[in-house]
């Protein structure tokens, strides 16, 4: 009996991600959610620019490759003209919280019925380790070689906190994939983010704290440790908005 197999929504091709990178885990969780909900045949995924640019090769649903930061706008175009599709974007921190901030904020403000999977690893991976809008104070990157200085490079963006203030957002949660317990929780959250869309509840965003061993200059194990020790206190895990629980508490 097979107890652990490739999700059907995940393509049978080798992923290009570096050893220790958590993109692969998140891809799997997204594919499992699509499988669990049985919607691969009506799902359209929007890939970003960044390390996950080739995500269009990794999912068995229809895929569109968007310009840098524009995935929420492209997703809006798909969903508004085809309301019966299930549309998700998969975006990194530079894509979603720097060049695509306007598209992100306004897709949320409009309450687009979409699912956004947001990978926050505090760095630009594909271009080789530059400072991201989410890079930590003091974090050394190739474009903040003396450490991110709030007076010079400004302060990081807390995406879930910011977006949870918008009425159009149904669900915003920050999760982590650093250990099996958190991965299992992340899976539930991602599935809920897709279920919300099927139930036409509005926009759901799952921010996933992730690692980038290559550009952090750490081993995979050290990277997970850094995520737990440095990132988690600065980017606390948890539900920042959930209209379901708000309704219950009323």
């Amino acid at each position: 009996m097979v107890v652990f197999d490739r999700p059907k929504a995940l393509s049978d091709v080798p992923l290009h991600y570096c050893p220790g990178c958590t993109h692969g885990i998140v891809h799997r969780l997204v594919a499992e959610a699509i499988d669990d909900l049985g919607v691969v045949d009506k799902t359209v995924g929007i890939a970003p620019v960044g390390c996950s640019v080739f995500a269009y090769n990794y999912f068995e649903c229809d895929m569109i490759e968007a310009a840098h930061g524009r995935a929420p706008a492209v997703a809006t175009g798909v969903k508004r003209t085809n309301p019966d599709t299930v549309v998700f974007t998969y975006q990194g921190d530079g894509d979603l919280a720097a060049i695509g901030t306007a598209e992100t904020v306004h897709a949320c403000a409009r309450g687009e019925n979409l699912t956004i999977i947001f990978i926050n690893n505090c760095i630009y991976g594909m271009t080789g380790g530059q400072m991201a809008p989410t890079s930590m104070p003091g974090q050394v990157t190739t474009t903040s070689p003396y450490g991110r200085d709030r007076k010079i490079q400004g302060s990081p963006v807390h995406v879930c906190e910011m977006l949870s203030t918008l009425d159009g957002v149904a669900y915003a949660e920050r999760v982590s994939v650093d250990c099996p317990k958190n991965i299992l929780h992340a899976k539930k959250s991602i599935k809920k983010a897709f279920q919300n869309q099927i139930d036409k509840k509005g926009l759901s965003i799952i921010e996933v704290l992730s690692t980038c061993p290559s550009n952090w200059g750490k081993s995979p194990e050290e990277s997970l440790e850094w995520l737990r020790k440095e990132m988690m206190p600065f980017y606390p895990l948890g539900v920042y908005k959930d209209i379901d629980s708000e309704e219950e508490s009323k």
Binding site: I46, A73, T81, N82
Partner: peptide
């Protein structure tokens, strides 16, 4: 649907998404 986007950049990318589904846009 006539949707006012947040910018010209967003508008043309919404066009791209709609066009990708085969919709005249």
């Amino acid at each position: 649907l006539c949707l006012q986007a947040e910018s010209e950049i967003a508008a043309i990318n919404m066009v791209m998404g709609a066009a990708a589904t085969g919709t005249r846009v």
